[in-house]
Nucleic acid binder design. Sequence first.
RNA 1: AGGCGCGUGGCUCAGUGGUAGAGCGCUUCCUUGACACGGAAGAGGUCGGUGGUUCAAUUCCACCCGCGCCUACCA
Length: 842
Amino acid sequence: MIPPPNVTGSLHIGHAFTLTLQDVIVRWKRMSGLDTLWLPGLDHAGIATQMVVERQLAKEGKRKEDLGREEFEARVWRWKEESGGKILKQLRIMGYSLDWTRERFTMDPGMSRAVREVFVRLWEQGLIYRGYYIVNWCPRCVTALSDLEVETETEAGSLWYIRYPEKAGGPGIVVATTRPETLLGDTAVAVHPDDERHRHLIGRPVLLPVLGREIPVVADEFVDPKFGTGAVKITPAHDPNDFAAGQRLGLPSITIMDERAVLNENAGPYQGQDRFEARKGIVAQLEKEGLLVKTEPHAVPLGHCQRCGTIVEPRLSRQWFVKMAPLAAPALAAGEDGRIRFVPESWTKTYFEWMRNIRDWCISRQLWWGHRIPAWTCAKCEEMTVAREAPAKCPKCGAGPADLRQETDVLDTWFSSGLFPFSTLGWPDQTTDLARYYPNDVMMTGYDILFFWVARMIMLGMRFAGDIPFPVVFLNGLVRDEHGKKMSKTRGNDVDPLDLVARHGVDAVRLTLTALAAPGTNPALGEPRLAGYRAFINKLWNASRFLLMNLEGGPRAASYDFSSLPLPGRWILSRQQDVARRVDEALREFRFDQAAGDLYHFVWDEFCDWYIEIAKLYFPDPVEGPRTRAVLLEVLEKTLRLLHPVIPYVTEEIWQRLPHEGPSIMVAPFPRPEPGKSDVEAEAAMERVMRLVTAIRTLRATYEVDRKRRIDVTVVAPAAADAGFIRAHAALVRHLAGLGAFEVMAVAVEQPGTLRQPVEGVELRVAMAGLFDVAAEKGRLARELAKIDEELGSLRRKLENPQFVERAKPEVVAQARQRVDELEAKRAKVAATLRELEGLAT
RNA sequence: AGGCGCGUGGCUCAGUGGUAGAGCGCUUCCUUGACACGGAAGAGGUCGGUGGUUCAAUUCCACCCGCGCCUACCA
């Protein structure tokens, strides 16, 4: 299942990230021959979408109340068509291989039916209840919020110490509060029962400042004597703790604010004022009346509405809740016994922690956009009926439909998205799709909605679909800007994926996101990175173009026997199978970064930089030319298939120009690891050749020899095996290093003015007298000598340590000894050259 | 308050109980007939600090410093 994007506008970079990774998995599995479904959908996103439309209305100078509920809903539906249509188009642009025949929307008839079904069953099972509780309330959105929709931030605030005088005329008691305005709703002051300082006041009335109302001093153990003065004002209607205390102690509740946090008739002189305006006034009044004892700076945790940032007001109101503990228990068990695995694993603990401490879920929202709660109340007898469809009559008094009023509240948007894994497949009907695709194989989404969405899908799926919704949860990070900073519109560093696409191309964007997807990290997405991966797409394109240019009339790769190829061919084929193996391993572990990185380096560093260059040497050869073309084609074609899940567009484009079978690379088989094709010998030999070539190039570069001049190189190889090897590959080395004469001999003919470079157990000699800077060469050799000595020193110290020799693994010790031998031989040669240069300099 | 994670070359980040890697940036050179979005060769790091375990620690453990994030009913 896709994590359904909200119909609030357009696709953002977070979607592009998650969905790209999903498409990589989906395409990979599809090419691997699996029955693959990736189901697209959109989320109605109740509060978020309603806000968007309300903002549009505001621009027209209207409020939703001006339209009325029905017309407003119609307007949101129109917006949904517009925004949803745009998003679906963007998903197509991104190349996501979703099954468009199964597209769903969280408010389409089928999913709405599933929502009602689940709601009614939960109700029937006693897991939904309704009642008056303190809930998180956004005065701007004018609705209740769940705990998860509140973002708490600790901000600088104050702790006000306020005196509540004794009615009898004593000094009374001083309370400490961070919210002085709520004192208007106080119905008691609480102290700890064992607190000697206040014990004498328990049960005696004190006078509420401002209003002069009489309230009792009560005892309750929840009071922390160490905080403030050890006395707490109790405002049951405006604080969750106080609400609980009020319930315990049988205190009344006085609500002092309306749904927009404006003080009401219970607020006396402050009626009509906003909560923060009233705070200022009250503090000033207390100060004036001498009741403000002191004010201290104090850090206060403040809840903000996730959608609009407004400071949340705890509000006593009638809401609907789901009892979560019974749902969490099996979900917890599924995690504990490994039926559900998290990737990266570190999320497991977070999941458990949340599940164990789960609290009931406030599911009702005072919004107009969403699934209306399927409950009807009889206007005549107050009887409430919860049902799948609107009842025909009141089951209690028989009143007709005209008297049955449906609940006006809608459900939290996550209630419907929580059913996504099965409601999209036709549940509650036992459809073939449900049987075939439930559970899903993997759920992939951002870690920010682990609780909102993933946890709830697990709980609801287990309860209603009869099984876990997915055995694996992959949680990706959140895209950051190139400096690792959070992206946000206000910060101005957010990026539009479609804008990136316009400038770099879909494949470059997808490759970048994939390459950055190291599990457990938040990818830092920046222009330089995008430019780099765009360059890769370009490189691949140019390499392919070159191959196609040289392919004319070339035979099909499959018709060739590669077993007797020259070394480079065997090498690249072996490397090809190795990269297939590594990509397979990486994808199995969701190591997208590794898969992308391995392919990037294989294509660029090995295939392009070495093999294509080598191929040019073989092209003119009547025998090797065609064979080389076949190898090039074989490697390119397979590599394209390996790359296809990440960069579908360019791979398809190139593939269509190649000889192949099948209609599309999208359904061509994904290359599987073929250990049998691994050629360790060829790889080792080729590496040796490459080191030799590199050493020669380094020599040239170091002395800044005229590039156009073909230098002559002699290799002194005393060992017959070395000499034989180098002679066998002499043409290759000459070609790659751009050499003139290239000779191999067993014994050196001493000549003055010769550069020497030990490498691979042999010695390179370049007659370059007069062409290089002797001083520079001496400096370089001296540095090389120092480096060798440093490593030699550390190795010797190690080997002289009996502990190391005895306790370290034998192969480690042997390796160290071998290394010492190598270094010593090399050292001797470098030192000899250095001595010779000393003579030359004079 | 609790939990999680991070601190590796100029920047952004991988990685590993036994000679430190990438991309970009930087230096030098090269317009050779796929590609200058290119090629070749380089410079650059006491792997946050202090202890401990170990023959051996950037890698494991403890503590500390700095920085994120999440969860939380301390007024």
